[in-house]
C-alpha cells in the first residue's frame, strides 16, 4: 500500500484531531487580522445609525434562534445593541421561541454592562417571549399599534405606559426589524411587516443561511444582512471605527465613511481601541473588552479552519486521482 492509498484510508479520528487543533489554538492564542467590511453589513450599520438620537425612530431586534448557533449570532446581537446604546438609539427586543428568551436577556445584560446610563423602559425595552401562536397577530398588529399588539414587556409592565414609547406607534416609527436566525424566519418578517406595512427588514443569519437571502438583498426587501461570524466581525469593526470613536471633534462617535472603513483597521490584541490607517496610528483610552471583539477573534479560528478544509480537499483529490484504477490496456 503506497502513501496515496494510505491517505485514502486514513482513520477519520486523525482528521477530527487536526480540526480540533486548528480551531482551539487560534482561539487560545489570538492574533491580529484585518476585517474587510462588505456592503450588506455597512448598509445595515448606516440604517441603524440614521436613527441616532431620534425620538420617533426605533429598532426591533427579533431573536429566532437557540443556543446552538450562539457562536455566530451572539456577537452580532451584542454589537448591534452596543451600537444602539453608544448612539442613543431606541431598541426593542422580542422572541417567539422559548429557548431564545434567556439568550435575549443575556445579550442585553452583556451589552448594557458598559452603558450604566441606559435604562430599561427609557432607552431600551425587552418585549420578552411571546408564544409562536401569537406571531402573526403581533407582527400584523404592530402595523397599527405596537403597544396594543404587544401589551406587556418581559417584566410585565404595560408597554403603553413606558417612556420609550413616546413617538413610537407603529412600523412608521419602529422602522427597522433585525431578525437573528439560523432558519428562514426572516422571510415571515418580509412577508408581513415589509410587504404589508413597508417596514425595513434586515437579517442576522448563520453563514449557511446567508446564500438564501441574496435575492431579498438585491430586491431591496432586506436593507442589510450580517452573514455568520464574518458579518458579526464586520459590525464589530464598524462600531469601533464610527459609533465608539471619540476625539475632540467627535465626542459621540463619527459619521460613516466608506473611505475611512476601507482604510482603517482595529488591532484586536490591544485592550484599548486603536486605529491603524494610512494617516497613521491613533491610540485611544476607550476600552475594547473581549465581548466586543469575540467575532474577530473567532474569525482567526475560521481562517485556519477554512484553509485546513481546502488542504483536506486537495489531499483527498490527489489521493483519489493517483489511486484511481487505470483502464485495462491489455484488452
Amino acid at each position: 500500500m503506497n502513501i496515496f492509498q494510505r491517505m485514502q484510508n486514513i482513520d477519520r479520528r486523525w482528521i477530527y484531531l487536526v480540526v480540533a487543533l486548528c480551531i482551539i489554538i487560534p482561539l487560545l492564542i489570538p492574533f491580529n487580522s484585518k476585517t474587510y467590511v462588505t456592503d450588506p453589513s455597512s448598509n445595515l450599520y448606516q440604517k441603524i445609525d440614521s436613527f441616532a438620537g431620534k425620538e420617533d425612530k426605533a429598532v426591533l431586534l427579533s431573536f429566532s434562534h437557540d443556543a446552538s448557533t450562539m457562536a455566530e449570532l451572539f456577537p452580532m446581537e451584542v454589537s448591534i445593541l452596543r451600537h444602539c446604546f453608544e448612539r442613543n438609539i431606541k431598541v426593542f427586543t422580542i422572541c417567539f421561541s422559548p429557548p431564545s428568551a434567556p439568550l435575549m436577556a443575556y445579550a442585553l445584560n452583556v451589552a448594557k454592562e458598559d452603558y450604566p446610563n441606559s435604562q430599561s423602559g427609557v432607552d431600551y425595552c425587552n418585549f420578552g417571549y411571546k408564544p409562536y401562536g401569537l406571531f402573526l397577530p403581533i407582527v400584523l398588529g404592530m402595523g397599527d399599534d405596537v403597544a396594543e399588539a404587544v401589551q406587556t414587556d418581559a417584566d410585565g409592565r404595560k408597554i403603553k405606559n413606558l417612556e420609550i414609547m413616546n413617538g413610537i406607534r407603529n412600523y412608521d416609527d419602529l422602522n427597522l426589524i433585525v431578525d437573528f436566525a439560523a432558519s428562514a424566519a426572516v422571510f415571515s418578517w418580509i412577508t408581513y411587516a415589509r410587504v404589508r406595512f413597508g417596514a425595513n427588514v434586515a437579517a442576522g443569519v448563520t453563514a449557511v443561511m446567508a446564500a438564501d437571502n441574496y435575492p431579498y438583498l438585491q430586491s431591496g426587501q432586506l436593507v442589510g444582512m450580517l452573514s455568520g461570524l464574518k458579518g458579526a466581525a464586520e459590525y464589530e469593526k464598524l462600531v469601533d471605527v464610527f459609533a465608539a470613536y471619540e476625539d475632540a471633534d467627535n465626542p459621540n462617535g463619527r459619521k460613516y465613511s466608506p473611505e475611512v472603513i476601507k482604510d482603517t483597521w482595529v488591532p484586536i490584541m490591544s485592550k484599548k481601541i486603536s486605529y491603524d490607517s494610512s494617516q497613521g496610528n491613533i491610540d485611544t483610552d476607550v476600552p475594547l473588552p473581549y465581548k466586543f471583539k469575540m467575532a474577530r477573534i473567532g474569525m482567526n479560528a475560521q481562517s485556519i479552519a477554512h484553509i485546513m478544509i481546502i488542504v483536506f480537499i486537495i489531499l483527498g483529490n490527489i489521493g483519489y486521482f493517483t489511486t484511481r484504477k487505470k483502464p485495462d490496456e491489455t484488452i
Binding site: I15, Y16, V19, D66, A67, S68, A71, I309, I313
Partner: peptide, 27 residues
C-alpha cells in the same frame, strides 16, 4: 447546561464537514 450542550451538538458539524470534505468532495 443548555447553552454548552447545544453549542457542542452544533460544533460537531465542523468535524463532520472536514471529514466529508476529505473523503467525498472529489473533482
Amino acid at each position: 447546561v443548555q447553552m454548552p450542550m447545544s453549542a457542542t451538538m452544533f460544533s460537531l458539524l465542523a468535524f463532520y464537514i472536514a471529514s466529508a470534505a476529505y473523503k467525498a468532495f472529489r473533482a
